[in-house]
Design a protein around this nucleic acid. Structure first.
Lengths: 356, 356
DNA sequence: CTGTTAGCGCGTTCAG
DNA sequence: CTGAACGCGCTAACAG
């Protein structure tokens, strides 16, 4: 037995018998409301709002007027569900307080701009367990692509990413094999090149100042590259000082002071990044050490702050903005995963500066 | 004529006659797949996954095992649509490269943590037209609350926010009447207090260095407060230098150099914020000007970088993290808008530092 | 150029 | 403690 199947909203009700048509709950205005007002069907409104398929200018105007009149805001939950396409890109970065990542996001936003896509950002705090939760949580929004920092993920996170079928970009490094796409540069090589550059400038007595590299795996890779370059020249690091926790100018300043207490004869100190190195410059300024002539300092990233110092920091510029932009461009260019993973090197350049 | 209505997924198919059950499209595993495998109904799976309603430990285990087996990831688009509750909080900030905003987001994330809510972030680049688009775009995700920076919005943006019915927090300032809730501090008062503090320390010959205050309205308010405090003491700014564009250390350094060229007799310079003031300190270091004794410098925000300087910056600390956290806490505490708008002052404190 | 029909995947009734 | 129906708001296919 089939009852007359409750009348659909769009069925013309017995004139005004069905009662007033007010948004009963808060947030109640739907496509149907607009359609009714414009005297067209819902699908016509839908098509016009998405610029999809043809539309007579007249109906178009009527619909747009109706939209404005009732203050209609499309429901993307419904839209995404119906079209199985959320127009979302999930992004997971380890931090926002390290300025490098906002800059990457800048590149991502720039590339997304005008594409109709929206980034949903998750911050893992350099914690792989948190990252795993974020992967699950972002995947639940059925993003059309996912951008995640680095190659270090839990097995579960990797499985979810892989199994999701969506395109995945692993950014900021290229020293491993990606699930799908990697965009960034080689940190090991950057460390190695740093070593070679400084050796070429005549430095021989090397020190190192860094932060927590269990969390920040890429800092560790740069360190390893540096040490390898020194080894090639028959040298080793004479001293190093590392602090737990994230990088910061305060930490860089304190760690350099600490290192110099026990190693006063160094001629160059390499820092894990520009934040730390900037702190190192601050220590020098406070302690009357003249950068380069008394002690050379070298950073990594090419941050604005380092270049604004009284003595611009000698460092490697990484191309963060471009990394974000490139990742999005490639992800959106081809919506299916390619047969084999690809790697894009966005490189880095030496900024000579004045501290080394 | 009604064809036998395509068999519903949940209908038991004629044994294996219906063929293999593979996720036909990519991304195919749904509640129904889990339910079939665990031999329960979809709703049981749904309830167990949400810890909602009772569940026998035995079924529970079977369901969770099935979830893991097939790698099920809930579809929040569908969930949100069905329950009309997205568990999303929209956040709009003007910038991510100004470290203040990542810090606010840190507070927002801290408060959201464990609540099951997720923040969706939009960045307006200090552009009200972009902000308006973001409001529409974020509202389309049917967030359960919205956090937006400042009081300056287009009429359309304000109308959408107001009409959405969701709770709205306008953060970072409290000098106007909010739509619903404001969390932050008074920038005018902060500027005024800065002036009084510096007057109290004996400074009389004031200069000002700032950035684009058409975009950054709060910097303008602080300036106005400062000028008012000077006026109360019968003083005026002797000189000021402002650059277009965003604040940065480089801009602060250059603008201070510029200002001092034409105004060499100043005894104190107030900066629009700590980034600019840090640049000012850099100029002093480069030019051999001793902060405080030769020229006093004062910033705003209390950033880590300023406190790590060889001469810690004299500044006002704003409580960004707490602002973000407090906004979320209040928004989630009460899901309906209160009768009258509320204002929460998260205050600021003078950091004496060593530059003024 | 426009409308009709049939779901998207889930959660909310209400029954058992 | 579990299940069957129904619809959230929208869009993909077809018609016409």
């Amino acid at each position: 037995m089939t009852p007359p199947k409750s009348i659909k909203r769009s069925a013309i009700p017995p004139a005004s018998a069905a009662g007033r048509r007010l948004p009963d709950r808060r947030q109640g205005v739907t496509l149907a409301d607009v359609a009714r007002l414009a005297e067209v069907s819902e699908i016509t409104v839908s098509r016009i709002l998405r610029n999809h398929g043809p539309a007579a200018p007249a109906t178009r105007d009527r619909v747009l007027a109706a939209v404005r009149k009732v203050g209609y805001v499309p429901n993307r939950l419904a839209g995404g569900l119906a079209s199985s396409g959320s127009k979302l890109v999930g992004v997971i970065v380890p931090s926002l307080t390290n300025i490098v990542f906002p800059e990457v996001l800048g590149g991502i936003r720039a590339a997304l701009d005008g594409s109709g896509f929206q980034a949903v950002i998750g911050v893992s705090d350099y914690d792989l367990a948190v990252e795993e939760q974020l992967v699950a949580s972002l995947l639940a929004w059925r993003p059309e692509a996912m951008i995640i920092t680095g190659f270090q993920h839990t097995a579960a996170a990797r499985a979810m990413l892989d199994g999701s079928g969506v395109r995945i970009a692993e950014i900021m490094e290229i020293d491993s094999t990606p699930i799908d796409l990697a965009v960034g540069h080689s940190h090991w090589q950057a460390g190695f090149d740093t070593g070679q550059y400084l050796l070429g400038r005549g430095y021989r007595r090397f020190g190192y100042v860094g932060h927590d590299w269990v969390a920040d795996h890429r800092a560790r890779l740069r360190y390893d590259g540096l040490v390898a370059a020194l080894a090639d020249a028959g040298l080793t690091l004479l001293g190093s000082s590392r602090c737990p926790g994230a990088s910061s100018t305060a930490a860089g300043r304190d760690q350099l002071a600490n290192l110099l207490e026990s190693h006063s004869t160094l001629d160059v100190v390499v820092f894990s990044n520009d934040d730390m190195a900037t702190g190192g410059v601050f220590h020098c300024l406070a302690a009357g050490i003249v950068p380069r002539s008394d002690l050379a300092l070298f950073g990594f990233n090419g941050l604005d702050i380092g270049q604004a110092l009284p003595t611009p920091l000698s460092t490697m510029r990484s191309n963060r903005f471009e990394t974000g932009r490139t990742a999005v461009e490639h992800l959106l260019r081809q919506r299916e995963r390619p047969a084999a993973p690809a790697i894009i090197d966005t490189g880095y350049q030496i900024l000579p500066g004045a501290t080394a």
